[in-house]
Each structure stands twice: as structure tokens, then as C-alpha cells.
Design a protein around this nucleic acid. Structure first.
Length: 930
RNA sequence: GGGCGAUUGGCUCAGUCGGUUAGAGCGCGCGGUUCACAUCCGCGAGGUCACUGGUUCGAAUCCAGUAUCGCCCACCA
């Protein structure tokens, strides 16, 4: 075949390579897509209807920190399926790819690399550190983008964005400035989660509550007498898990109604080592039953205590520095690490005789999600976002249905989190990220501006910019991520893209970042643009290892998606990740799934190879697509068309439901169990039958082509490379594009017209007959290759179909001749007593006797006189089954209330069934008796 | 402490609006050199749908409770 023929889009390549080698195909196919320019909403090669509503998918930009893992693969696959589906429906699609600078994660990774090189943040300094970071992300960025293409992602690479690029930077400055102007961003001293390892504050979401067994120590604080001296004989005992923080204690709290302590309220105790007198206060927050019922109050290092301290107007004494070492306020313990200090304090208390008890205690310790360090609550002056008003509008959006969350159950956690939301700490004491655009003058005035060059002067006192200092902190990464759906479209400018593509259609991501990311996008999107950034939030589950454990490098149970692609191809990996999954549910990923997907890819390839290679001679190799006459189709062809129509409808339903796992399952089934097992097998007989008229044989082939064509379209989102490669060899219609990726999704109306239920019913009955004959032959141990004769009675309505399919039935049952009798009586008259009986509904067949076996023979023993017909066992089994069902059916019909209350259709169905079973049972009994 | 999810053959999972006989893949057993595919073909065995109770003519499905596992949220020191 010539290149010209291919270029017309109508050429038929004579055959596909015998074996499908993904590596040979995938790269080349991707190049063809790129060359044809089909990915973007207005791509040159795209065939979208410009007036159709655009399909915009919002994806989480992966972190620039390293290679992609299986979770990324799943994300890209799910999104690619959705985008390809929409593209084939003729909608302009926007899938905007990008990367996230991931400030804390990236610094964590780079710090490790630097440590290996004998360098550190401190040794490089801010400027050189950032230069180094840019070099690092330049390489990882290329890796990630390259990998995304290997997954087959059909994103619009021309629009690739980075959360640290200038457009993003401007969006960040603008967003923050407006929030500040709107009174939603504020700077305040507050207790924040401090990670001493990362040397930055982190948000509540970034701290992980870790169960640990700690110790609950009981410590005596001596009461002060009127002269202010500690009384060695009188004390109040407090319980604490953090004895080192006593150095920052400012009070002891008891419950106001606690009779043990009521007399002590208002008196003072002495804090040891720092020799500080503090009051005993009453506060209902104290749990009387816990510990001693008396709590030490350390406002600077505990969030409960902070709140208590504020209620009582107590000072907050910070005793730790950024490295979590005790500071000068800790008196004799200054300079000690927090845990060293703890030991020392305990030893000193012991020496004083004031350590009363130590008991093991189950507790939750907050650890840094990134570094696993124990997070320290500390007082810091930082920037916060007032989230309540933003959260309310996000809740309105989901409650009103303006934005829908799928699966719906996630709406509950969404509700809860947004209802209980606390202010968002935006400041990070890191270097890699967007610098907070706030400047401070020596008088403490704050100037916030979105000007890239900073403010001219202090907006309060007019001091020139030279006297202003910019905040040294950067923003939480998720702040820029939260702007993603619109910052990528040119916001804050009112761009054409923004007007056309905001809000997005579907936001797709894993449920693990619903709060980190989805909630933030919702809050910020609604605030800045007045409407939510997407209509649907689709959350997929997590990919776990075969035992259900989380995949992690340290556990060594990760599957490298690129390795899997090298071994079995991207299509198989994609199918393995999607087939058999449902939205929001985790999946256990295993080698077996990959194998199964690979087998399916192989099956499709070979089916296509057969179909294309089975072209009858009278059809020219480069023949244009031809629609056969309905009258030239046989029952098998009509059956196959009808099943394809049913598949289109079922897949459409699943896709509309966002249930792509179900869609893939339906397609697996249709391809393997319908097209391959029956469609092709039936067709083989007609195609090979030279006695048939040419138009009948060609009609069969064109029917296979039609079925394959429809399945290729439906399968393309799932197996893009493989289907595209097959498509290239298919005879295409005049209107079909050269590339499947921009071909049209099967039309529902056309598909509905393919349905032919009477044919399906008739052919299904004959398919069951074939299966049952095979079963009978198998149990009777008739060699599969051996031809046998048979006699059959087929009820009149089925007779014509039977005759039309006779050659196929003969071949598939390996029975010939099959003598058909018009009445059952005729059949029984000729039936040999030892023939195998096959009773399928109204059809009854007798197959020439098989080998008669004893039980001993069946288990491999020597040949013996044959007394037991193995076939009898099968019939008895069938009889028992039928009798069971019959009994159930009769019970139901004997039930008066069933007859009166159940819908008449159900009752009628039960009656029919009962009649059928009665008949079936009678004939089975008759046969067994005979 | 609160919430969510899961529990269906040996394993991994489907199962729509409650409806007759609960499906698939893998694995298992038997058979197979059928000219697309052994990454295959044919046949088969294997399930009291976690448990208890309820609603209903009818429950894997709806309700209540229990158990086990997993996850999320949470300020008892």
C-alpha cells in the first residue's frame, strides 16, 4: 500500500504485525497526534464543533519534586479518558497541564541533595539556594512532562504552566492584595504549628496526629503563703505530658465546681526553677476526672492553654526558639534541646521531691507531614486568611448543587471541614515560593501591594520604599494552587480564555487533597470570580499495594509506572488502573491486574488482525467503507449489530454517570465475550463458505468492520495507542478523520437503530444450545475434534434462524449431520436411548452416544466394563437444579399476597417461568427414566 | 471521641429502580496442535452476599444494631 492511499484516509493496510509491540507503536502514535495538532480546544487538527460547550478539566499539577508514581498515572488516565471522550463528542476540550512548585516538598528534597553534597540552606544563602532550586526543577519538569506523554495524556502542552511562572506570580500578588483590601487577609501573632526540622510553620492539614505512648507526670507546685514564700507542706499537683513547658507556665487551672480545689482558687503557686508566682484559676475547660484535675497553663506552647490564657488575661511566655531549644526565659535550662530539657527538669523535680508520679499514657503527637518532626505549637506573627466567609460561599455552592461532588458521600466530610474551618496560616518561613508582597516600615506600618516592583512608599506614613522591608516569608504552596483554575487562564486580566473556560467542567483528583486543594480552589474561585471554579468535583481513590497498604518508597512496595509501560505498554497500564474500579474507592494494584490488561490489549489486537485479514477477495484492499444491505445480513450479523448498539447505550450511560470503571468493564465484555467469542466465530463460517453469494459474504465482513469500528471508538479513551494503531489499518468512511482521536463518538440514535431484540433472543437461545452441547460432549468425554451426528427438534419460530445458522452451529458444536425434526414426537421416535440429551428451553437435541465411562475410568483407571453413563450425572444435575428453581417458582405463585401485591408483569413472568420449568423438568425426567 | 468506607466463591472486584436462576477476571480441575490470539480456545467445580433483627408479596440491595478491617476529622493536659 502506498503512502498516498494512506493519506486519503481510506486505505486498508493489508494486515497488522503479528505481535503487538507497544514500544514500536506508542511513540509513533503520539508523534502523529502531536504532528496533527489535535489536543487543544482550537487545535488545528481537532474536529470540535466550536459552538458546543467546551469541556474543561481541571487537574492537580504534579509536584516538581521528582518522577511520577502510580497515583499520578491514575490521575492522568482518568482525566485522559474524560477528555478523549469529550473530544470525540465534538466538544472543544481544554486540559491544561502544569506543575506545582511544591515549596516545602521541593525544599525537603533539595535539602537532602545538598546535604549529600556537603552543602546546606545556610551555607548557600537564599539567592544561591534558589538558583540551585531552579536548576533542579528544570530537570524534574522535563522528566515529568515526558512521562505524562508516555501515559498517553492528551493535554494541551502548548499551555503548560508552572505555579512559579510570572503569570502565576502576578495572580498570587493580586489575590493576596485583594484579600488584604477586603479584610480577609490579616497579620497577627498566633499560635502556629512549628516544624523545627523544616524551620517553618505548617498548616493544620500538614500535621499528622500520630498515636504514641507517652508519660503522664504528676508534678507538685507549692502554694505560696501570705508572704509569698512556697510552703513545703502544701502543694497542688498537676498532670502533664510535657514537663519542660512548666518553665512557661503562667497559671494552674481547676474546674470551678471541683470541691477538692475550690478553696485554692485565687491563691498562688510557685513555678519551680524559674521561681515565678502564678495564680490558681477556675475554668470549666478542665476535665475533673483527668489526671489530678489540675492543669498547668502554658499559653505560648499549647493551643488549649493559649485559649485559656486569653480568657483569663494571662501573659504568654515563649521558652523555645526556632530550633526547639529552650531560650533565656527558661532560666537554667536555656540552650538545651526540648527533650534534653525535659529529662533535666524531671531529674531536678525528682531531686526536689516534687515529682509525684509517672504513668504511661496513650496520646496523639502532631508530627510534620513532610519531615516527621514533632510539631511545636509556637507564637508567631504571620499572615492568615479569614476563612469563615469564604467557606460559607463554598458550602452554598455545593448545597445548591451549583457544584456537585462525586461520589456524593464526600459531601459529608466537605460539609464538616468547611463548617469547622479555622483560619488559614499562609506564611511559610521558606525560600522556594512566592514572596509575600507585604512591606513594613520602621514604625510597624504594613503596606501590601500587587506591584511587582513593590510599593513606592509606606501607605500609612509615607516613608520611602528604601526604608521599607519586605516580609521574608513566602506563601503556603496551596495558595498559588488554589488560584490554579483561573490563574492559568490569565486572571487577573479579563481574558478571552477566562471568559470561555471558567468555570471548568470537571475537577478531577484524588480524595486525599479535597481540603488542601479542592476546598481552597472553591473558596478563592468564588471570591475572585463570583462563581465556583467547576461544576463537578470527581474524586478518585488511592492506588494501594496488593495487600491494601499504602505504596511508599520506604516500604519498597511501589510500582514504577514507567517500568510497567516498558514491559506491557501504556494502554495495558491504563486499563489495569481503570478497569474494575469505581469512583472514590481505593484499589489494590497487582501484577495480575497488569497481566489481565495486557491480555486484553493482545486480544483486541488479534481480533483486529483477524478481521482485517479476513477481507473477502472481492473487496479491494483499498475499498471505501461500505454499508451492507440489511437483507444480506444473517442472524449472527444482526445479533452482533444489536449487541454493539446495546454496548454503545450502556457505555454512554456509564460515562454520563462518570463511572469509567464500569464503562471499561462493559467494553472488555463486549470485545471479548461478544465480538471475539461469538461475532467473529460465527462470521468465520460465512466468510469461508464459498457457496454463499458474494454480497452475503461481503456483508458479513462489513458487519465485522462496523462492529470493530464502533468498539474502537468506544475503547479509544481507554486504550488510545492500540486503538489508534488499529484505526490506521481500518477502512474508513468518507467523513472519518485519519486519526481516531478526533473521530466521532458513536451516536446514540444510530446505535439504538441497531438494536434487534427478536434476533437477540433467537440467537441467544442457539448460543445456549451450542454451550450445552459442548458441555454434554465434554462431560461425556467425546474428543473435541470428533464429529458426531445429532438429531434435534427446534420449535417452529426458531427453525428459520436455526437453518440460517446451521453451518456455524455445526462447526461450533462439532456435530454433523444434524437432522432437524419439526415435532418433538418425530425426534423422540429416532432418538437412541444412549444418546446425549441436550434440553435447552424448547430445543431438544440428541447427540450420537459418547464414550461410556465408569467412575474408575473418569479418574484415570484402566478401561473397565462401562456401566455408568457420565452423561447421566450431568442430566441429573440439571434436573436437580431445575427442580429447585421450579419449587421456588411454585412457592411464589402459591403465595396469595404475591399474586395480589406484586406488579402484574412480575407475576406474569413468574407464571411463564413456572411453565417453562415444568416442561423442562418433565422432559429431563422423561429422558432419565427412558 | 465523631464521621466515612469496606465486608459478595481461594484472590481482586462488579452488582442500576428491591423482582424470578448473584456476575466477571485471576486462580483451580478436565479437555484442546479448530488456519486472529497458548498473552489462546472449550467445559466445569466453587457463593447460607460478615452477623442479628426489622420493613416488604419479595432484600446482596432499604432501615436499625453488632463485629472485623481500613481511612478521615478531633484542643483531655
Amino acid at each position: 500500500m502506498t503512502d498516498e492511499a494512506n493519506a486519503t484516509g481510506r486505505g486498508v493496510r493489508s494486515s497488522l504485525p503479528k505481535t503487538y509491540v507497544p514500544a514500536d507503536v506508542e511513540g509513533a502514535v503520539y508523534e502523529r497526534w502531536l504532528a496533527a495538532d489535535v489536543f487543544g480546544p482550537d487545535a488545528r487538527g481537532a474536529t470540535a464543533d466550536v459552538d458546543a460547550p467546551p469541556f474543561v478539566i481541571v487537574m492537580p499539577p504534579p509536584n516538581v519534586t521528582g518522577a511520577l508514581h502510580l497515583g499520578h498515572a491514575l490521575t492522568l488516565d482518568v482525566e485522559d479518558v474524560m477528555v478523549r471522550h469529550a473530544r470525540m463528542q465534538g466538544r472543544p476540550t481544554l486540559w491544561l497541564p502544569g506543575l506545582d512548585h511544591a515549596s516545602i516538598a521541593a525544599q525537603f528534597v533539595l535539602d537532602r541533595i545538598l546535604a549529600a553534597e556537603g552543602e546546606s540552606r545556610a551555607s548557600l544563602g537564599r539567592e544561591r539556594y534558589l538558583e540551585r532550586m531552579w536548576r533542579f526543577v528544570d530537570t524534574t519538569r522535563d522528566t515529568i512532562l515526558h512521562q505524562s506523554r508516555r501515559f498517553g495524556a492528551s493535554a494541551d502542552w502548548s499551555r503548560t504552566r508552572f505555579t512559579m511562572d510570572e503569570v502565576s506570580a502576578r495572580a498570587v500578588r493580586t489575590a493576596f492584595t485583594r484579600l488584604y483590601r477586603d479584610g480577609l487577609a490579616y497579620r497577627a501573632e498566633a499560635l502556629v504549628n512549628w516544624c523545627p526540622g523544616c524551620r517553618t510553620s505548617v498548616s493544620d492539614l500538614e500535621t499528622v496526629a500520630t498515636p504514641e505512648v507517652g508519660t503522664l507526670w504528676t508534678i507538685r507546685y507549692h502554694l505560696l503563703d501570705d508572704a509569698g514564700r512556697p510552703d513545703p507542706e502544701q502543694w497542688i499537683a498537676v498532670a502533664t505530658t510535657r514537663p519542660e513547658t512548666i518553665l512557661g507556665d503562667v497559671a494552674v487551672a481547676v474546674h470551678p465546681d471541683d470541691p477538692r480545689y475550690q478553696a485554692l482558687v485565687g491563691r498562688s503557686v510557685r513555678i519551680p526553677f524559674v521561681d515565678r508566682p502564678v495564680p490558681i484559676i477556675a475554668d470549666p475547660i478542665v476535665e475533673r476526672g483527668f489526671g489530678t484535675g489540675a492543669v498547668k497553663i502554658t499559653p505560648a506552647h499549647d493551643s488549649d492553654d493559649h485559649a485559656t490564657g486569653r480568657r483569663h488575661g494571662l501573659p504568654a511566655i515563649t521558652i523555645m526558639d526556632d530550633d526547639a531549644r529552650l531560650n533565656v526565659a527558661a532560666g537554667p535550662y536555656a540552650g538545651l534541646d526540648r527533650y534534653v530539657a525535659r529529662k533535666q527538669v524531671l531529674a531536678d523535680l525528682q531531686a526536689l521531691g516534687d515529682l509525684q508520679a509517672a504513668t504511661p499514657h496513650d496520646m496523639l503527637i502532631g508530627r510534620c507531614q513532610r519531615s516527621n518532626d514533632v510539631v511545636e505549637p509556637r507564637l508567631k506573627t504571620q499572615w492568615f486568611i479569614r476563612t469563615k466567609p469564604l467557606a460559607e460561599r463554598a458550602l452554598e455552592a455545593t448545597r445548591s448543587g451549583q457544584t456537585r461532588i462525586l461520589p456524593e458521600r464526600f459531601e459529608k466530610v466537605w460539609e464538616h471541614w468547611l463548617t469547622e474551618i479555622r483560619d488559614w496560616n499562609l506564611s511559610r518561613q521558606l525560600w522556594w515560593g512566592h514572596r509575600i508582597p507585604a512591606w513594613y516600615c520602621p514604625d510597624g506600618h504594613v503596606t501590601v501591594t500587587d506591584l511587582v516592583e513593590g510599593p513606592d512608599a509606606c501607605t500609612t506614613c509615607g516613608r520611602p520604599s528604601s526604608e521599607l522591608d519586605q516580609d521574608g516569608d513566602i506563601f503556603d504552596t496551596w495558595f498559588s494552587s488554589g488560584l490554579w483554575p483561573f490563574s492559568t487562564l490569565g486572571w487577573p486580566d479579563d481574558t478571552a480564555d477566562l471568559r470561555r473556560f471558567y468555570p471548568g467542567t470537571v475537577m478531577e483528583t484524588g480524595y486525599d487533597i479535597i481540603f488542601f486543594w479542592v476546598a481552597r480552589m472553591m473558596m478563592l474561585g468564588i471570591h475572585f470570580l463570583g462563581e465556583p471554579p467547576f461544576r463537578t468535583v470527581y474524586l478518585h481513590g488511592m492506588v494501594k499495594d496488593p495487600t491494601g497498604a499504602k505504596m511508599s518508597k520506604t516500604k519498597g512496595n511501589v510500582v514504577d509506572p514507567l517500568e510497567a509501560i516498558d514491559q506491557i505498554g501504556a494502554d495495558a497500564l491504563r486499563f489495569a488502573l481503570i478497569n474494575g474500579t469505581s469512583p472514590g474507592n481505593d484499589q489494590k494494584f497487582s501484577r495480575e491486574k497488569l497481566d489481565s490488561a495486557r491480555n486484553f490489549a493482545n486480544k483486541l489486537w488479534n481480533a483486529a488482525r483477524f478481521v482485517l485479514g479476513a477481507r473477502p477477495d472481492m473487496i479491494a484492499p483499498d475499498a471505501a467503507r461500505h454499508v451492507p444491505q440489511l437483507t444480506d445480513l444473517g442472524p449472527a450479523e444482526r445479533w452482533l449489530r444489536s449487541r454493539i448498539g446495546a454496548t454503545v447505550a450502556a457505555v454512554d450511560l456509564a460515562m454520563a454517570d462518570h463511572n469509567i470503571g464500569e464503562a471499561s468493564r462493559l467494553l472488555y465484555d463486549a470485545t471479548w465475550n461478544e465480538l471475539c467469542d461469538w461475532g467473529i466465530e460465527f462470521a468465520k463460517v460465512r466468510l469461508a463458505d464459498e457457496t454463499l453469494p458474494a454480497e452475503v459474504r461481503t456483508a458479513t465482513w462489513w458487519t465485522l468492520i462496523e462492529a470493530l469500528d464502533q468498539l474502537l471508538r468506544l475503547l479509544h479513551p481507554f486504550l488510545p495507542f492500540l486503538t489508534e494503531a488499529i484505526w490506521a489499518a481500518m477502512p474508513r468512511g468518507a467523513l472519518d478523520p485519519e486519526l481516531l482521536i478526533v473521530a466521532r463518538w458513536p451516536d446514540a440514535t444510530t446505535a439504538a437503530a441497531l438494536r434487534d431484540e427478536p434476533t437477540e433472543t433467537a440467537v441467544d437461545a442457539l448460543r445456549t444450545l451450542i454451550t450445552e452441547v459442548r458441555n454434554a460432549r465434554s462431560t461425556a468425554r467425546i474428543p473435541p475434534s470428533e464429529w458426531r451426528a445429532a438429531a434435534i427438534h427446534v420449535p417452529a419460530p426458531l427453525a428459520a434462524t436455526f437453518e440460517e445458522l446451521r453451518p456455524a452451529i455445526e462447526r461450533m458444536t462439532r456435530l454433523r449431520p444434524i437432522v432437524r425434526h419439526d415435532t418433538r414426537a418425530e425426534l423422540l421416535a429416532v432418538a437412541q436411548p444412549d444418546a446425549l440429551a441436550v434440553i435447552v428451553g424448547d430445543i431438544e437435541a440428541f447427540v450420537a452416544p459418547g464414550v461410556l465411562l465408569t467412575a474408575a475410568d473418569a479418574s484415570g483407571g484402566a478401561g473397565r466394563p462401562q456401566t455408568v453413563q457420565a452423561d447421566q450425572v450431568r442430566l441429573e444435575h440439571e434436573l436437580a437444579e431445575a427442580e429447585g428453581h421450579l419449587a421456588a417458582a411454585r412457592d411464589r405463585l402459591a403465595n396469595e399476597t404475591f399474586l395480589t401485591r406484586a406488579p402484574s408483569a412480575v407475576v406474569a413472568g413468574a407464571r411463564t417461568r413456572e411453565a417453562e420449568l415444568t416442561d423442562q423438568v418433565a422432559r429431563l425426567r422423561e429422558r432419565l427414566a427412558g
